[in-house]
Write a protein that binds this DNA or RNA. Sequence first.
DNA 1: TACATTAATGACTGTGCAGTCATTAATGTA
DNA 2: TACATTAATGACTGCACAGTCATTAATGTA
Lengths: 243, 243
Amino acid sequence: MTAQSLMYPMRSHMVAATSPPAANSRPPRRRRKDARPSELTAAALQLFVEKGFAGTRLDDVAACAGVSKGTLYLYFSGKEALFKAVIEDGMVAVLAAAEQHLADYQGSAAGLLSQLLLGWWEQIGRTPMAGVTKLMISEASNFPELAQYYHDHVITRGRALLRAAIQRGISRGEFRRVDVDAAIDVIIAPLLLLAISRFSVHLRGQEVTAEAYLAAHCDLLVNGLRDTETGPHQQTIEGSACG
Amino acid sequence: MTAQSLMYPMRSHMVAATSPPAANSRPPRRRRKDARPSELTAAALQLFVEKGFAGTRLDDVAACAGVSKGTLYLYFSGKEALFKAVIEDGMVAVLAAAEQHLADYQGSAAGLLSQLLLGWWEQIGRTPMAGVTKLMISEASNFPELAQYYHDHVITRGRALLRAAIQRGISRGEFRRVDVDAAIDVIIAPLLLLAISRFSVHLRGQEVTAEAYLAAHCDLLVNGLRDTETGPHQQTIEGSACG
DNA sequence: TACATTAATGACTGTGCAGTCATTAATGTA
DNA sequence: TACATTAATGACTGCACAGTCATTAATGTA
């Protein structure tokens, strides 16, 4: 331990004794109380998804948000509080629009279903928020309370949307009488994996684009693989990009 | 720092000066050179999946395998080498049997497809090895080289199996001419998510059993949701649990 | 311009864990 | 039984990082 390191403040002395504060002087502080929290959670989301919760350093989160670590602690009481904020921020009112859309919708159940899937892609899957999905999967067992909250407030609500669409299709005679809950699981899975794969570049080759993937999913879901070999059958779902 | 802590060995002195080595004497050492590596990788798999790579302590891995940390370093050069061993061990020759099965198979493509999916569940999905899937997803960005290896030696090979089954179905006129690569992604996704969800108890309610889930997947895949409303159609796939 | 308020800083501390190595003891051999 | 070999141990070290706080300076007010 040097004598220097014992002296508490000791800002950069001996730096160009002649006045002009050098080209490499640090940029001026900015006071931006309102903007900091969201900038910090955005930085944290990116790093948590990339490195994992335990593997992420708060120094890096702060640097990525353009502040010092001390500032981070001004807004969040610690690493875990920051993590919770990332998850909760990420999902506020994303589902509300879809719920409204469902209430207003008039057309076919197949059209509704594909609109829900594509809407998910636009609002979540292709945005940074998709990372929340990977994060919850990776960290659920380390944060059981938070996982429970996520289950109750995000997963359950998303499933309810799909359940409504499928049951609408069944009651209109449009769909077969499948096991609805199992079908929901199967429908959701490709979406979640698409979201996750966006953050695992090294696990994917460049097999297919997200759009082709979603289209194939909608198509297989509604039409299956079976060749009905009866007349003009391969028509697409009306009014959607699916098919 | 006490004087005691400076003395290097200093095993339990002052412990019942009268001979019988007390009920709480430590169990005798066992020399089991051959068994240690696999016991250590099994323990590591469990803890890595549960806590993440960075969140797992090697002391805990060793304890879980019933040895000291020093012993762990006798068999693996460090934490990262242990991680690689977990991944590589986990996947040796799991795919070979399926490849043989494919070569011998005679029946319908739909039957082959469902046998591949159910076989995956029996060999991987319902075993501890399913954890490798979650592990690779969580850690791929921290270990790009290992992810590349996994992609080339596991993912690519698994996809080839499915591609063969689908193309067989198309050329037999059994399946429609779908986008094969996109279909493979969609088919794999529910399997991977099923594997992952086994380690995220707090994210799932108890929606459906794995078997119902896989059955629904096979059914939706082959038959789709569309109600063909033409005669006796809802038959199951011959000779499989699907449908 | 002087002064008060408080956002922002970063050097510092304590702790927890990866990795080391001198010592211990199980097992095989003569 | 004495001795050699080597598997197994666990106290120890160094370092990286979460969290603290005395100090600095941006901005608003008189």
